[in-house]
Amino acid sequence: MARAPSGGAGAAAPGGSARHRHPGGPGPAARGRRVRSRAALRLARHRPRRRRGRVGGGLLRRRRLVPVGHGDFWLSDTPGRAGSNTWGGAHPRMVTWVRFQDRAAGGRPFCVLNTHLDDGSAYARARAAALITERVPGLAGSAPLVVTGDFNAIAHESPAHATLLGAGLVDTWDAARSRGPAYGTWHGWGAPAPGGDRIDWILATPDVTVLRAWVDLSADGGQWPSDHFPVCASLRLPAAPE
């Protein structure tokens, strides 16, 4: 059983990029201490500083998971060109992917993709979702797949969500055997909004069992760690084939 939060801590924790930083939020030193205390590994390759855009990374529990392959591609007509942006988005956007083996499941392989879709262009989001669906078979093969991210689009009300579900993925919030209260996942440093728009999603292939889904409202000293609330899911991988 893997706990796969979007932006939180767990067995595999892909992290999204926040668009704003609260002036009173935790500084880089505090964030660095937390990362080191988890003995985590950052899996994203950094772009040269001259390039602008959003980079997706991930944290993992190295005692549980073994990364056996990872890479990235940009959400554009030239996905192999770092920093490329050809669909009119406000920023270059990308996907970071990792293939893992789960020590607790006898080395069972699975794949995680993390992304952050554009906040300024619905067209760019739709094209990005289509590109992700094209790339998934070559990255995950027959292995279970989890896709996480800040999609900047409302679940069940956007072409990007429809495209990804149309490719065979399921929304873990919908598939969960139990779930916590629903909140809008972008709060802009304000109060939680019960029943608000869920723009951060965890998607998975249907062979992944979703035990529970919830929105994490944890605060550190009364301050949110991000302008998004983490969406979390407790997942169980299918048994490895004989």
Score class of each variant (00 low, 15 high):
residue 144 P to N: 05
residue 57 G to I: 06
residue 208 V to L: 08
residue 33 R to A: 14
residue 81 R to V: 15
residue 174 D to N: 07
residue 143 A to K: 04
residue 116 H to K: 03
residue 209 T to C: 04
residue 138 G to L: 12
residue 152 N to R: 01
residue 148 T to H: 06
residue 31 R to P: 02
residue 11 A to Q: 04
residue 216 D to Q: 07
residue 52 R to D: 10
residue 2 A to V: 08
residue 148 T to R: 01
residue 128 A to D: 00
residue 233 A to L: 07
residue 187 H to C: 05
residue 202 I to H: 00
residue 142 S to T: 14
residue 149 G to F: 04
residue 87 W to C: 03
residue 240 A to F: 09
residue 122 A to T: 13
residue 184 G to M: 05
residue 95 V to Q: 00
residue 181 P to H: 13
residue 40 A to Y: 08
residue 66 V to Y: 03
residue 129 A to H: 03
residue 63 R to T: 12
residue 231 V to A: 04
residue 175 A to C: 04
residue 175 A to S: 09
residue 56 G to P: 05
residue 51 R to S: 08
residue 32 G to R: 13
residue 43 L to T: 10
residue 150 D to C: 06
residue 167 A to W: 11
residue 7 G to C: 12
residue 203 L to V: 07
residue 211 L to Q: 07
residue 176 A to Y: 02
residue 217 L to A: 07
residue 134 E to F: 06
residue 109 P to Y: 08
residue 138 G to Y: 08
residue 93 R to M: 12
residue 76 S to M: 11
residue 36 R to W: 15
residue 32 G to W: 15
residue 207 D to A: 10
residue 145 L to F: 09
residue 58 G to V: 15
residue 192 P to I: 05
residue 87 W to L: 03
residue 222 G to V: 07
residue 241 P to E: 15
residue 48 P to T: 10
residue 67 P to T: 10
residue 162 A to T: 10
residue 42 R to F: 11
residue 122 A to M: 05
residue 180 G to C: 07
residue 203 L to C: 09
residue 120 G to Q: 13
residue 68 V to K: 09
residue 151 F to T: 00
residue 144 P to G: 10
residue 85 N to F: 02
residue 157 E to M: 04
residue 225 P to C: 05
residue 159 P to S: 10
residue 236 R to P: 03
residue 90 A to F: 11
residue 26 P to G: 07
residue 3 R to K: 06
residue 23 P to M: 10
residue 1 M to N: 08
residue 27 G to Y: 09
residue 199 I to M: 02
residue 62 R to E: 12
residue 206 P to V: 13
residue 103 R to Q: 12
residue 176 A to C: 09
residue 99 R to W: 15
residue 162 A to E: 14
residue 158 S to R: 01
residue 111 C to K: 00
residue 216 D to F: 06
residue 65 L to C: 11
residue 81 R to Q: 13
residue 192 P to L: 04
residue 175 A to R: 13
residue 87 W to I: 02
residue 44 A to P: 02
residue 76 S to R: 03
residue 8 G to Y: 10
residue 125 R to F: 09
residue 132 I to L: 04
residue 202 I to A: 00
residue 62 R to S: 14
residue 142 S to I: 05
residue 161 H to E: 01
residue 58 G to S: 13
residue 146 V to C: 13
residue 211 L to C: 06
residue 6 S to W: 05
residue 124 A to I: 06
residue 76 S to W: 04
residue 9 A to D: 04
residue 203 L to P: 01
residue 208 V to G: 01
residue 59 L to K: 00
residue 35 V to A: 11
residue 120 G to S: 13
residue 135 R to C: 12
residue 165 L to K: 01
residue 94 M to D: 02
residue 185 T to R: 02
residue 219 A to C: 09
residue 236 R to M: 06
residue 35 V to F: 12
residue 130 A to V: 15
residue 229 F to L: 14
residue 241 P to D: 08
residue 230 P to F: 04
residue 55 V to I: 15
residue 119 D to A: 14
residue 85 N to C: 14
residue 174 D to P: 02
residue 47 R to V: 09
residue 206 P to C: 14
residue 121 S to C: 12
residue 124 A to N: 05
residue 42 R to P: 08
residue 151 F to I: 07
residue 69 G to I: 05
residue 15 G to N: 15
residue 29 A to C: 05
residue 30 A to L: 11
residue 200 D to Q: 11
residue 193 A to H: 14
residue 27 G to D: 15
residue 17 S to D: 14
residue 70 H to P: 03
residue 221 G to D: 13
residue 146 V to Q: 01
residue 69 G to L: 08
residue 129 A to Y: 00
residue 193 A to P: 04
